[in-house]
Amino acid sequence: MFYPNSPQTSPQLTQIPYGQQYAMMQRQIQQPYHPFATTEPQARLYPYHYQGPIQQEQGGFITQQSTAASPQYVQMRVTPVDQSIMSGYPNQTANGSSSSSFNYNIHPQQQQQQQQQQQQLRHHAMPVGSVPLQDDRYRKQLIVNYLAPDVTSTDLHELFSRFGELDGARIIYDKQTNMSKGYGFVYFCHAEDAKEAVERMSGYEFHGKWLKVGYSTNPLNIVPSNSSPYVHAGSRGAAG
């Protein structure tokens, strides 16, 4: 039997160049792979992502010199942007860049009308829970959420009447099932009393439920100042 490094198959040491006398086997001759043993700084910083320098080929596509990437890492192929796409944008300079302001050559009167329309939209648009300043009635009506099913309009009136005089209180019921929808409205005579009720009743436990109280901004629920107070009856038909 002959071994790869046996004296019968191995040459004389004098015939082997210096430095390879003890590297006779194939696994010894093959050098191990060192990912950080390279002179390129990109490979030292990113050993798993770097795959060699990027070269520009004919046709405008950018390719990489090395083989496919590892399945664990996804390499994105980048193509140059066609400058003709950006030619339609206004205020574009000769080098292809555009300024931040756009001039669509709008007539001054049209621009003024658009600004007025935007101001009107901001004036009428009102986020949930906010209180408008032009109508004091919005500051007097509250919406009470997360009410228990057994709470009546009379219970709601008695709960909030300790903060001040009320114009009314009612629970909203479903017309088909005649069941409470879980929320109601309270109408105060003074805005200061309503503000105190919002601050003190939010998070209050009532009939096993934690109440959420806020201003009601729905104009359909506003009680006119010259109208008669609501009837605080315990029956659902009268309260709904």
Rank of each mutant, 00 (worst) to 15 (best):
A125I: 14
Q65V: 03
T67W: 10
Q112G: 08
M24A: 14
S153C: 02
Q92T: 07
M179C: 10
S70F: 14
Q75S: 11
Y104H: 01
V186G: 11
Q176P: 06
Q118N: 09
D174C: 07
L133R: 01
I171Q: 09
E192V: 14
T154V: 13
W210M: 11
Y22H: 07
Y48V: 10
H157A: 11
Y46E: 07
H34N: 10
T154Y: 15
Q12P: 03
Y146N: 05
P149M: 13
L133E: 00
Q72C: 09
Q15N: 06
E192K: 08
Q112L: 06
I172C: 01
N226F: 03
E57P: 04
R200Y: 12
G234V: 07
R122P: 07
D136L: 06
G182M: 14
Q116L: 03
S202W: 06
G237R: 05
Q75V: 13
T9K: 00
G203V: 02
W210P: 01
S100G: 05
M201E: 08
D82R: 07
N5Q: 00
Y215A: 00
H49G: 14
I106V: 10
Y22P: 01
M126V: 06
P127D: 03
A125K: 02
V186L: 08
S235F: 11
G164I: 07
A194K: 12
T152G: 09
H190A: 05
H123Y: 01
Y50V: 10
Y3R: 09
P41T: 09
D174R: 06
G184S: 15
Q28A: 11
Q55I: 10
Q12G: 01
I143S: 05
K140F: 01
Y46L: 03
E57G: 07
N178D: 14
T152F: 08
F36N: 00
Y183L: 00
S180T: 08
M86K: 01
F102C: 00
P132M: 13
N218Q: 06
Q134G: 15
S225N: 11
F163N: 00
D150N: 08
Q15I: 15
A68I: 12
Q134S: 14
L13H: 08
K181C: 05
Q65L: 12
D136K: 02
D135P: 02
Q119N: 04
G19Q: 08
Y104S: 06
N221L: 07
L147R: 12
M86L: 08
Q83C: 13
Q55D: 11
L147S: 12
G60H: 00
F102Y: 09
F163K: 10
T79E: 15
V198E: 09
F2E: 07
F163P: 15
V213W: 15
N5G: 04
A197K: 00
G88V: 05
Q30H: 01
C189I: 03
A94P: 10
M86Y: 03
L142D: 11
V198D: 11
F61Y: 05
M25H: 13
Q51F: 12
Q8W: 00
S100C: 06
M76E: 05
S99Y: 03
T9M: 15
N105L: 12
R200D: 11
Q42A: 14
P132R: 03
I106A: 14
T79W: 15
Y33G: 14
Q114E: 04
S10A: 08
M76V: 07
L156T: 12
Q72F: 12
Q31K: 04
L45P: 01
T39P: 06
E158L: 08
F36L: 12
K212F: 11
N103Y: 14
E57K: 01
M86P: 02
M86A: 13
T79L: 11
G19C: 15
D150S: 12
L121Y: 15
S98Q: 15
Q113V: 05
R122E: 07
F102N: 10
H123N: 15
K209L: 01
T154C: 09
V78G: 02
S101L: 15
Q72T: 05
Q120R: 12
Q51V: 13
L220S: 05
A68P: 03
T177V: 06
Q134E: 12
L121P: 00
P41W: 01
P127K: 00
Q15F: 07
H124C: 00
S225D: 04
P229T: 02
S10Y: 01
P132C: 09
I62D: 06
F206R: 04
E205T: 06
P219H: 00
A197W: 15
Q92N: 14
I62L: 04
Q113E: 12
P41F: 15
Y3E: 02
G234A: 08
V186R: 06
N226S: 05
L220Y: 00
G164R: 08
T14E: 11
V198Y: 03
S98M: 00
G19T: 12
L121I: 01
L147Q: 14
